[in-house]
Design a binder for these strands. Structure first.
Lengths: 254, 254
DNA sequence: TCATGTGAACCCGTTCACAGCT
DNA sequence: AGCTGTGAACGGGTTCACATGA
């Protein structure tokens, strides 16, 4: 496979740190809430609280986008919603295909948060002939035979894999060959993709295991410390949320 | 907040970095696969490839657990499976409750990867009276009125929230009050919890937005790079050339 | 005066390269 | 010889603290 050089051009201007990118959706959601309540401006402190991060981090994040705030005042909510949306590419339409319409696939198809932002479910695809034609979330499921045509006809560049792990890699290969360059993988498998293709994974089992690790440690410390709520290490402080895998966007090379 | 002193007491023994913990499940999965194929030993190189990380990182990760390998040979698969399982706390049983049995909740209840490791679905809980009694994944759904009793009767310390975002915080509060100290949140909301409670979130919408960001950037670079006789693998779709605001000059507000 | 924007210090995680053991 | 285990260099991200400017 011609491993074309991705040519990372050290774009200092558009060089937004990955960690910042991962938080932009969080800010956007908080801002959308404020917007719906017609709040005109927010301070970094308020917005940070709503998004569950600290204000210094938020200001630093925004500084990568530009100087969108007003000193002594704060940020204009509507303006910021627009800027972040544009930065994330949500001002355009992203047709998405979901492959593997089992319980999870159906759940995602029905998920409202999809369409609310620029994403549109262009097609639901399943390998089971019995599924073909069935309506899920108001969309007819199509057989996987036509996967390639569906991708190209709809200009799909983002694919969601919700198949059993045994076929995830094959599905991934076909998606990539058909032109998909971003994949969201729910199957518990390590996907191998060519350079230039982004893969992000969501793995329930891994999340639970991480929780179990901390849970076990709590129990151990509890016993050792006798009683009393001793938070200690484990969680940072406020808002202990953490993305899937810390950060690492899982941009896997071939 | 209350954590006045971080006091990292040189806990060399149990001081496993968070990033390492997040990868242990990955190693465990790869090892389980090898175990099933009766492979006796693996080198860091092989195992790393199977887990999708590089070997230096893997060795460093394992070094935090102890010296479980044999120089010149590699790691004993079975032994490592046991050690990692133990470290993650998977040698014990973790009863889990799922709150919110919609599409997603049902999907998770049916998810096999659950029981395969130490996790057991102790109860399915929903606020809809019409759901009560219905069987999902062979388990009868219970009404949320009994949430507290269910938690304590089963000694549940891990809860999964798959409710609509509007009620996620309330559900979270009740879970925590009832004794749950680890929460896996699928609702697109920032949960606020007391110190000592772990929250991990899984957010489809955020993942897609991150992918969209990179996707947009790919399209932008493609256009900027002129034609590019060296297409990065598959980036040959001409569909994404609508970059109207590829890089709009920052328009300052007032 | 107030909150943003940012250099600098700091911390964590990754990578390198080789010492150490089998 | 071969592969693990790890000190040290490196780099990205977070936090601090204050200069900057409305």
């Amino acid at each position: 496979m011609a491993t074309g050089r991705t040519h990372r051009p050290a774009t200092r201007s558009r060089g937004i740190p990955e960690a910042t990118v991962a938080r932009l959706p969080l800010y956007l959601r908080a801002l959308t809430g404020l917007s719906e309540r017609s709040v005109p401006t927010v301070s970094s402190e308020e917005l940070a609280a709503a998004a569950g991060v600290n204000s210094a981090k938020l200001r630093k994040d925004f500084s990568y986008l530009g100087s969108y705030g007003t000193r002594g005042v704060g940020y204009d909510v509507e303006y910021l919603v627009y800027q972040i949306s544009r930065e994330l590419g949500l001002t355009q339409d992203w047709p998405v295909v979901i492959v593997g319409i089992g319980n999870l696939g159906a759940a995602l198809a029905n998920y409202g948060g999809f369409a609310s932002r620029g994403f549109r479910v262009a097609a639901l695809i399943d390998a089971d002939p019995a599924m073909a034609g069935k309506q899920v979330a108001g969309i007819a499921v199509q057989h996987s035979d036509g996967l390639e045509k569906i991708i190209s006809d709809n200009g799909v560049s983002i694919g969601v894999i919700t198949t059993p792990p045994s076929v995830a890699q094959q599905v991934c290969d076909r998606l990539v060959a058909a032109g998909v360059t971003s994949i969201l993988n729910f199957a518990p498998t390590v996907l191998t993709v060519p350079d230039g293709v982004d893969v992000r994974k969501v793995d329930l089992s891994i999340e639970l295991q991480i929780l179990a690790f901390h849970e076990q440690r709590k129990a151990g410390e509890e016993a050792a410390a006798g009683d009393g709520v001793v938070p200690t290490a484990v969680t940072r402080d406020d808002t202990t949320d953490q993305g899937p895998d810390g950060d690492v966007p899982a941009v896997m090379p071939a």
